[in-house]
Simulated assay, not measured.
Amino acid sequence: MSQKISTTDLPDGAVIGVGKYAVGNAGGEYFAVSRKCRHLRADLADGSIDDDGCLVCPWHGAKYDVATGHMVLGPQGVFAKIPGLDAAVEALTRLWPLRRGRLEQRGDDLYLS
């Protein structure tokens, strides 16, 4: 069963939660990825889109490529100071990237399945 989202609810830079997915608009490109950060399971629907079009975790600043689901920058802040943690979490996402949902656009509506 697919879920309908209006593109008017997703202006450029917006991220919302839709079921198990964080759905967003990165520079006019809509995406859907699983909602839980691979680091400490923060809700990525509360995240933001940076200037590179990456989804940024609201808790510790990890960045995800929304096209692949891979982490491109590990946790920041206090967690960035723990030797090896950044590299270990990034390596984990190569094996276990965020799931990507399929979005289909029809007019001003997106359908997530």
Rank of each mutant, 00 (worst) to 15 (best):
Q3T: 12
A91W: 03
G28R: 12
Q3Y: 07
T7Q: 09
F31P: 09
D51T: 06
G47E: 02
R102K: 15
Q76K: 15
Y64T: 11
A80T: 03
D43A: 07
S2F: 10
Q105F: 13
Q105M: 09
I49K: 08
S34Q: 03
H60W: 05
P75A: 02
V66M: 04
G53P: 15
T7E: 10
F79Q: 12
L40W: 11
H70M: 07
V56P: 00
A26M: 04
A88D: 13
G28P: 14
Y64N: 09
R100M: 10
K36R: 14
A62F: 00
T8V: 12
Y111I: 05
E104K: 04
V56M: 01
V78R: 12
A62M: 02
D65R: 01
H70C: 10
G74E: 01
L55T: 11
P11I: 04
K63P: 02
T68G: 09
K4P: 06
L55Y: 04
K20H: 00
L110R: 06
D86P: 01
G19D: 00
Q105D: 14
S113N: 10
G28S: 10
I5D: 05
C57V: 03
Q76H: 10
G24V: 03
L85C: 10
T68Q: 07
H39C: 06
R38M: 11
G61Q: 08
G17S: 12
C54S: 04
Q105K: 15
R94P: 00
I49S: 11
D52L: 11
L110K: 05
G84H: 03
E29I: 02
D9Q: 14
V18S: 08
L85V: 06
K36V: 06
S48N: 02
A67W: 03
G17F: 09
R106N: 15
E90A: 11
V78M: 15
D86Q: 12
L110I: 08
C54K: 06
F79R: 12
L103T: 05
A91N: 11
D65V: 01
A91T: 12
S113V: 08
E104L: 07
